[in-house]
């Protein structure tokens, strides 16, 4: 077996809630509790859970937007939270993210080409115009689209732009947080197919987060079910669907219509 691309060891993240009473200690919300996972290069791991299950916090931990209170996040063998700020910024070219809201994830005041090239500039790469053209083509948009502003595109096209930006640095890992949830079914299918295409072309590994088990099941080799910050079941997608061990997984299966 190849060396894992991403490893989480016993990762927990807690938030302190606003104080409700002066003398009582503030309540603590455990958003992610002792989660471990590994992801091999080119593989897709699905994370399913309802709202408040901690799946988005897990994405932020993988992206090193937040530090875990316990545990380590290893990417290509390095502890991301042990890196200096500058080294972490350079390391980011290897792991990128796609967000849920295609309207919010692009700066409305910047041309699309500018936004797509942003990760290149930030990590000190060159040759951006040609590369931008290349990724636009890869995600099924035209090179001329680089000159337009986000509001000129539909939701699905914007999500293509967001994906173009995420893969422009040729990352090894893509974190997709509810990346197709805001889209209509027919557009959702286009984006899912695009992600599968990119994955095969670029050997991309993916952490695919969604509340929709049907979507996760169609794109992921393995999946992990979360509830209230805990990982309650993990395994091969086909096994999980055929014989869920946990009652909660079973109820999600029923709800998704599978």
């Amino acid at each position: 077996m190849t060396a894992p691309l991403l490893e989480l060891h016993g990762v927990s993240r807690r938030y302190r809630m606003p104080r409700e009473a002066l003398l009582r200690p503030p309540a603590v919300l455990t958003a992610v509790n002792n989660v471990s996972l590994t992801l091999a290069p080119g593989q897709t791991l699905g994370i399913v859970g309802e709202s408040g299950s901690g799946k988005s916090t897990l994405a932020r931990l993988v992206m090193a937007f937040e530090r875990p209170d316990e545990g380590t996040v290893l990417f290509e063998g390095t502890d991301l939270n042990g890196l200096s700020a500058g080294a972490l910024r350079m390391a980011r070219r290897r792991f990128q993210m796609v967000f849920q809201d295609p309207y919010g994830s692009l700066d409305p005041r910047r041309r699309v080409g500018w936004s797509i090239a942003e990760p290149l500039r930030a990590t000190g790469a060159t040759d951006s115009p040609a590369r931008v053209k290349q990724v636009l083509d890869q995600v099924g948009l035209r090179a001329a689209d680089a000159e337009k502003y986000p509001h000129e595109f539909s939701g699905g096209q914007r999500q293509r732009i967001a994906i173009a930006r995420a893969v422009v640095t040729r990352p090894a890992l893509l974190v997709a947080d509810e990346a197709v949830s805001a889209l209509d079914v027919s557009v959702q299918a286009q984006i899912l197919n695009l992600l599968m295409d990119l994955q095969e072309e670029m050997g991309l590994a993916m952490v695919f987060i969604s509340h929709d088990l049907a979507v996760v099941a169609c794109i992921c080799d393995r999946m992990l079910v979360m509830k209230h910050g805990d990982c309650i079941e993990a395994g091969e997608t086909s096994r999980l669907i055929a014989s869920p061990r946990h009652e909660y997984t079973r109820s999600l299966l029923v709800a998704s219509g599978l």
């Binding site: 539909s154 939701g155 699905g156 096209q157 209509d184 079914v185 027919s186 557009v187 959702q188 299918a189 286009q190 899912l192 197919n193 599968m196 994955q199 095969e200 929709d212 049907a214 979507v215 099941a217 169609c218 794109i219 997608t237 086909s238 219509g257 599978l258």
Partner: peptide, 30 residues
């Protein structure tokens, strides 16, 4: 098209060539 685009049991997993099965899509946008 709408029914085919919906991820379900029959368009899940990998085809005989080892590639992941694609969903049926409706080209373009509304």
């Amino acid at each position: 098209g709408l029914l085919g685009a919906r991820p379900g049991l029959d368009n899940r997993g990998r085809g005989p060539d080892g590639r992941r099965k694609r969903l049926v899509t409706i080209p373009g946008t509304v």
